[in-house]
């Protein structure tokens, strides 16, 4: 796992890369509205992402925020100023 403290904050690309890394897929392949639970994420993995992203500066994100709508586009807009 990359050392998250070296990240200078979260970007759409870094969020996408973190998710792709966990799913073992190419970052470009994941659709913005694809259901990430269908894609193989689960609550334990979502928790690991939360820890990584909180350490990278998204310090208010909580588990239900991500679990409610497990879609990359939604997560990127929650975590960054960018769009997917």
């Amino acid at each position: 796992m990359a050392d998250p403290t070296q990240q200078a904050g979260l970007t759409a690309a870094s969020v996408r890369a973190d998710v792709a890394d966990l799913l073992g897929r190419d970052a470009g392949d994941i659709g913005a509205d694809e259901n990430l639970l269908d894609a193989g994420l689960d609550s334990i993995r979502i928790m690991s992402l939360i820890e990584r992203w909180r350490a990278a500066g998204a310090d208010t994100v909580e588990f239900p925020d991500l679990a409610e709508r497990p879609e990359l586009g939604r997560w990127i807009s929650l975590l960054t100023q960018e769009n997917a």
């Binding site: 334990i44 928790m47 690991s48 939360i50 820890e51 909180r54 350490a55 310090d59």
Partner: peptide, 12 residues
């Protein structure tokens, strides 16, 4: 896996 997530979270 939960213990690992908690260990990470304990730091902050």
């Amino acid at each position: 896996p939960l213990a690992a997530a908690w260990v990470q979270a304990a730091g902050r």
